[in-house]
Design a protein around this nucleic acid. Sequence first.
DNA 1: TGACTTATGGACCATTTGGTCCAATAATCA
DNA 2: TGATTATTGGACCAAATGGTCCATAAGTCA
Lengths: 193, 193
Amino acid sequence: MTGRPRTYRRDEALEAAVELFWRQGYDATSLDDLLHAMKISKSSFYADFQSKKALYHTCLQHYQSFVVNHLQNLQSQSASLPQFFQLVFQEVIEDAAAREPKGCLIVNSAVEFGQHRQEFSEEVRTALEAVQSTFERVIRAGIKDGQISCRISPKVSAKYLTTCLSGIRAMIKGGMSARDAKAVVSKIIRSLE
Amino acid sequence: MTGRPRTYRRDEALEAAVELFWRQGYDATSLDDLLHAMKISKSSFYADFQSKKALYHTCLQHYQSFVVNHLQNLQSQSASLPQFFQLVFQEVIEDAAAREPKGCLIVNSAVEFGQHRQEFSEEVRTALEAVQSTFERVIRAGIKDGQISCRISPKVSAKYLTTCLSGIRAMIKGGMSARDAKAVVSKIIRSLE
DNA sequence: TGACTTATGGACCATTTGGTCCAATAATCA
DNA sequence: TGATTATTGGACCAAATGGTCCATAAGTCA
């Protein structure tokens, strides 16, 4: 196996695909869109990624592990749980300032596929839960370190946090201004303390 | 104008279209899907609704005014602001118990179209704001009647409420259980008081 | 250099998409 | 009954969809 070398890098192509799906959604993204964005020929596409559906699955997994990883990084950068929340929502607000906010790929997928497109909905549930349980771990650790009051359960807090996050990401994608996003975020953060 | 009578009722057909778009989204709903659900011929469809795009606009408007109307009804049924919130979230939880939760057509549209499909995003923003300002009016009235503390501005509360609502509707569409939805809802309601 | 292996571009394909058009149909009203 | 008017089914259409296939290009290794 020493044939002709490929002219693209798989990880870069994948990244481009994630970006596109993230912005436009699954159905609204055509194969042609993908080929252009990924800078890859149709043959290579099917050789390397099997199908549009398979690619989406790969993208979702990629995104999910990126998010979980990223949240853990934010945790290690934070001195306290409140600060962690600040960092998380900081990025959300940045998205709100973008010309074409992308929202969150998982939330976008949840809404696009609902529970009626089985090929995807199970994986989306998994991804949502992965985020949720990451939050739960972080909150649990924060409580242990005495960084925050422990009146409510980490589990419920994590679910609430995930829900709020999904909410603003959806609202922002729907056109909510950065100003409004900021106001809502500070209300959410207050309700978390 | 005394020609052949139509075999369907426009409002019923429209209702069916709303239902379908609500469940499946715009792109995932084909013309054939619509014709079947609406029990209408292609000719009648184009004569009566112009195009798929135009129909979607009509559906969004229909849905929006339904929601605003409905919220006002809930208000008049409520003795207090907290009770109003209860009623609102009650229905959300009912959706969570459905086999195929539909979420909210406006939120679904916000996520599906984002800010990159101009034909729709403006109208979606309008719809989101209509809901938001309905909440604002209700909250304002509640504060006036002394039903609730007035520590935070009705405007921000309304934005926060809309965001939370969008959040659970998205989560539920993504598969969140009714149990979890209940837990999150009670946390939200507590944070509103 | 030549054998081998992999990547590439592009022709090709069936299906589905949203949409148009018209002849046939079915009512009302005089 | 016949003229009028509006609805209907279905034939038709161009474009776009996701996907397959193969001859050719472009490398590596002996």
